[in-house]
Amino acid sequence: MDNSICACGSFLAYKYCCEPYHLKTKVAPTAEALMRSRYTAFVVQNADYLYETTFPTKRGENSRKSYLKSAKNTKWVKLEILFADFDVVEFKAYYLNSHLKTAVLHEKSNFKLENGLWYYVDGEFYL
């Protein structure tokens, strides 16, 4: 992605936006920043980042292998943040389904700040 616009919707170049988080040269300062960087990690198929930013007690449910499979099997189109608070982010993530029609994943995600690092804990899905 290098000079391309970051997938998270910031309109910044990837290398100045989510890439430093993915390369571990910076840490996401807020739950929203982590949410955006995780969405972009799905786009660029960075399963290690997705696994490492999942709260440790929740990692058993989400292996690196399952994250990679999900990322490879989904064509993400756009991220829309609907609401962001200290440790909660509600978003819509648009993707192409198996019939190449746009579908939406609508989730309210819960995050936890521990030892200066944000983690994804879990989410509530909306239909």
Rank of each mutant, 00 (worst) to 15 (best):
D2I: 02
D2M: 07
S4I: 12
S4A: 14
I5V: 14
A7E: 11
C8N: 02
C8H: 15
G9F: 12
S10Q: 10
F11K: 11
L12A: 15
L12Q: 15
A13L: 15
K15W: 04
Y16T: 06
C17E: 14
C17H: 13
P20N: 12
Y21N: 11
T25A: 06
K26W: 00
V27Q: 07
V27C: 06
A28Y: 11
A28F: 09
P29Y: 04
P29K: 08
T30Y: 09
M35G: 10
M35F: 08
R36E: 09
S37P: 08
S37D: 11
S37Y: 15
S37H: 14
S37C: 10
R38Y: 03
Y39G: 10
T40M: 03
A41C: 02
F42N: 12
V44D: 01
V44A: 01
V44E: 06
N46Q: 06
A47N: 01
A47T: 07
A47G: 01
D48V: 09
Y49M: 05
Y49Q: 02
Y49N: 04
L50G: 04
L50F: 03
T53M: 08
T54Y: 01
T57F: 06
K58F: 01
E61C: 02
E61S: 13
R64P: 05
R64I: 09
S66V: 00
K69R: 13
N73M: 00
T74E: 00
K78F: 15
L79G: 08
E80A: 14
I81M: 14
I81F: 06
L82I: 15
F83W: 01
A84Q: 09
A84Y: 00
F86L: 07
D87S: 12
E90V: 12
K92Y: 08
A93N: 12
Y94R: 03
Y95G: 05
Y95S: 10
L96N: 01
N97R: 07
L100N: 13
L100Q: 15
L100A: 05
V104H: 09
L105M: 12
L105I: 08
L105D: 11
N110H: 07
K112I: 05
L113D: 00
L113F: 09
L113P: 10
E114S: 06
N115R: 02
G116V: 02
L117R: 12
W118T: 08
W118C: 09
Y120W: 13
V121N: 04
V121Q: 11
D122P: 03
D122F: 01
F125M: 14
F125H: 03
Y126G: 07
Y126R: 11
